[in-house]
């Protein structure tokens, strides 16, 4: 099965302090869906990925297939497998459509 890889031209960075803040907010029961923990610079524009999006982005290092990514996340998140696969696939397809991820 083809592996998911990031476009090597995209400059990106994990924001550890932001991630810590988001995890703390999550503990407090706050909605953190629109808070970014990974920043991407694409064509001079900065984009942010939220916590789960950032996890997926980090996993797409060219060594994992979509199934591998879903399996890894399934061990970390208490979500029904089918729901998780649906959400991950939709997210990945979005990024593939933007050219930020590719199947290699």
């Amino acid at each position: 099965m083809k592996k998911l890889a990031r476009d090597p031209q995209i400059v990106w960075r994990n924001e550890k302090r932001r991630e810590e803040e988001i995890l703390a907010a999550l503990e407090r029961g706050e909605d953190v869906g629109d808070r970014g923990s990974v920043i991407l610079i694409v064509g001079g524009t900065m984009h942010q990925l939220n916590l789960v999006g950032g996890y997926i982005w980090n996993l797409c290092d060219g060594s994992r297939s979509l199934d591998d990514v879903v399996e890894t996340l399934a061990s970390e998140f208490d979500v029904h497998d089918e729901v998780l696969r649906h959400d991950v696939e939709a997210f990945v397809n979005d990024l593939v459509g933007r050219g930020w991820l590719r199947y290699a």
Binding site: R13, E15, K16, R17, R18, I41, M46
Partner: peptide, 11 residues
């Protein structure tokens, strides 16, 4: 600045 405050370093 809520956007840049939490950056770990300059871009």
């Amino acid at each position: 600045d809520p956007i840049s405050d939490l950056f770990s370093a300059p871009l």
